[in-house]
């Protein structure tokens, strides 16, 4: 599907969800509780078949988090970006998409490690880069490391 077709299809399938477009991808804004259902639909729907989650990350906007999912389809070769807004910065939690895409296991571990966003339903959520005792989440904008000597 081309970008335009995909946009109108998404509008039909998920009415009420905000759509945007950036320079690369069409963007679909999803509520955090719905993310698993939407992702499942997008992956299993014959018309979209987003079977390849090539990136998953988060952005710390200081007031809230933004989850970004980049996915593509190996059959149709169309790309999609899904965004989720997480209002509660201190206790951010959203459903894991690991059951759909195994790749998400590591991505979500990384996000958990560096942003402190928890994923419910993730089988082995752990800190992969930092040690288990590490205080704070380094990629948050307000992260302070006392040991760092500023040059």
């Amino acid at each position: 599907m081309t970008k335009e077709e995909l946009k109108s299809y998404l509008e039909k399938t998920f009415p009420g969800m905000t759509q945007e477009e950036n320079i690369d991808f069409p963007v679909l804004w999803v509520e955090k509780d719905q993310i698993f259902e939407v992702a499942k639909k997008l992956k299993e729907d014959e018309a979209t078949k987003f079977d390849f989650l090539f990136d998953e990350t988060a952005i710390d906007w200081q007031t809230h988090f933004e989850m970004v999912y980049h996915m593509t389809s190996t059959t149709y070769r169309h790309d999609l970006e899904i965004k989720v807004k997480l209002e509660d910065r201190d206790d951010a939690e959203l459903p894991s998409v690991e059951p759909l895409w195994k790749a998400a296991e590591m991505y979500e571990n990384e996000i958990y490690d560096l942003f402190g966003i928890r994923f419910s339903g993730h089988p082995h959520l752990r800190r992969i880069f930092m040690t288990n005792e590490w205080k704070g989440y380094p990629l948050r904008k307000d992260y302070q490391d006392d040991d760092v000597i500023s040059l």
């Binding site: 090539f54 990350t57 952005i59 590591m106 991505y107």
Partner: peptide, 23 residues
Amino acid sequence: GVYIVSDGKKEPYRVRFRTPNFS
């Protein structure tokens, strides 16, 4: 994959590298 989020300043707001080896 290089994912750059800009807020218009001279530094990028967020840079994310989707590296092949990680996946």
